[in-house]
Design a protein around this nucleic acid. Structure first.
Length: 463
DNA sequence: TCACGCTATTAGGTCGACCA
DNA sequence: TGGTCGACCTAATAGCGTGA
């Protein structure tokens, strides 16, 4: 049945094609007799377009297309029934206006820009993807895949970051930004792009100047037709969301979302590189995000005291919230060798030691001497031999973990004197030699602040 | 030319003084 | 007592100079 219908369609189209050819041939002969060479060339252009349209119509993939015979082939990209109905209605309208070609088209950025943007760095889409663009029908939202407009040449321009939608052409041109006096071209690289079947990708584009001098302190990227290809077709320009272009040096201070464990601590919100807070943290032995997280989980109050008045309580909340977005996958293993003193380790699932817990004192892994590192490795080996005693240490504070351990292991058991005076847990992130005791000049985090003194982190011996 | 350091400026927030 | 305003602090950003 389907095959029969397809055959009928093919025959119909062949007749149409032959008919058109015959009419075109006689029409051209008539034009040649009556008009100048320029006029003939002009008409030949329109005939060429008509041929292209018919050629497209003959492609088997387009036999089912409701736009058969229409000047512009659009590729539906909607599965929504309402949208589809609307698209069909629009296509019917388009068919009614096909003779004068007055079809509204719109350029479109299909990829969001990767923010923040720095001078001297190549513009990229989100997650480093290329920046994809397309030409779509305004009413249908479908990509224009054929016709002269589908292979149009476009120009990339810089626009002011002011608010405003659906700028008319004059408004768009008015918002175009030129480079500052004495500065080179604002946007360098490949500022021209040619569409292929209605889609394309922006080439290498680099801002040479920041946007702070601009009235809105922001720019947009705009896309407009480079040459006057389609006099009868209004192609609306495209523009991206407004964004700030920062000086390349800003990249050195750039915050990471989310931060990674091995990031320097100034990658966190509210910690300026080489600022007061950064200096205080460095002095306390907190260099990396993982150091910050470890300290925060072991003894949040002490960490807050390290920063002191450098940071307001509101900013502290922002800082901790940002730090907590770091994915850690940390494991905690604890044992009590002599029934009183707690030993253990915090490590990653990839067997990377984060900290060694010795006699209730935490020692950051990167500051351990070789002998202590060996101890840490032994504890990790022990932990992997006893997976049932290994707990997640991800987002919870140490005191929370200990409370869970207590309630699960000793639901009713209370060690004499320890409910009020638990074994202190110290957190030591500052440099410490294997044998040297903590001196009076030692940094704050080195002062052996106990859990009891700060947030009630408890440490109970195993049975 | 580029990377880096120093410094000035700006933005945003807190805190205390003042006044109704 | 509550609202407003200004001083002050810190982080973030950008301009400029310098040296490799």
């Amino acid at each position: 049945m389907m095959k029969q219908m397809q055959l009928m369609m093919e025959n119909l189209l062949r007749e149409l094609w032959n008919g058109v050819l015959g009419r075109v041939a006689s029409h051209l002969a008539e034009i040649c007799q009556r008009n100048s060479v320029e006029a003939v060339v002009k008409r030949l252009d329109s005939v060429e377009n008509a041929f292209q349209e018919l050629k497209d119509a003959f492609k088997p993939a387009n036999f089912h297309s409701p736009q058969l015979g229409r000047g512009i082939m659009v590729q539906p990209n909607t599965t929504n029934p309402q949208q589809a109905a609307r698209a069909q209605e629009c296509r019917a309208n388009a068919r009614s206006t096909e003779n004068n070609h007055a079809i509204n088209l719109q350029l479109q950025f299909r990829t969001k820009l990767s923010i923040p943007i720095f001078t001297g760095r190549k513009l990229q889409g989100e997650n480093g993807a290329p920046i994809s663009i397309a030409l779509i029908g305004v009413e249908t939202g479908d990509v224009v895949t054929s016709g002269p407009e589908s292979s149009i040449k476009l120009e990339v321009v810089v626009l002011e970051g002011e608010d405003g939608d659906n700028w008319p052409q004059e408004e768009f041109e008015k918002h175009m930004v030129k480079e500052r006096a004495g500065k080179g071209q604002l946007l360098i690289g490949n500022c021209l792009v040619t569409l292929k079947e209605g889609v394309g990708e922006l080439g290498e584009l680099i801002f040479t100047d920041n946007s702070s001098w601009n009235k809105s302190k922001r720019f947009r990227i705009g896309l407009k037709v480079a040459e006057d290809y389609c006099r009868n077709t209004r192609i609306r320009e495209a523009k991206t969301e407004a964004f700030r272009v920062k000086d390349y040096r800003g990249a050195a201070y750039e915050k990471h979302y989310p931060p990674s464990c091995d990031d320097e601590v100034y990658r966190l919100d509210r910690i300026a590189k080489d600022g007061k807070s950064h200096e205080k943290l460095k002095t306390a032995g907190i260099h990396k995000v993982k150091d910050f997280l470890l300290q925060q989980r072991m003894d949040s109050k002490n960490l807050r005291e390290i920063l002191g008045s450098s940071i307001t309580s509101k900013n502290w909340d922002i800082l901790v919230r940002h730090a907590k977005t770091c994915q850690t996958n940390w494991k905690l293993y604890l044992c009590c060798s002599d029934g009183m003193r707690m030993h253990g380790a915090i490590f990653t699932t990839e067997r990377q030691l984060i900290s060694l817990i010795e006699d209730g004192v935490h020692l950051a892994a990167h500051q351990l001497c070789a002998r202590k590192k060996e101890d840490g490795d032994k504890v990790m080996e022990e932990a992997f031999r006893n997976p049932n005693d290994v707990r997640e240490f991800n987002g919870e504070t140490f005191s929370d973990i200990m409370q869970k351990i207590c309630s699960s292991r000793f639901p009713s058991q209370v060690f004499e004197g320890q409910s009020e005076n638990p074994i202190p847990v110290q957190c030591n992130l500052a440099p410490r030699t294997c044998d040297a005791p903590v001196g009076p000049e030692a940094p704050q985090a080195n002062v052996g602040s106990t859990a009891e003194e700060h947030n009630g982190a408890t440490a109970l011996p195993s049975p």
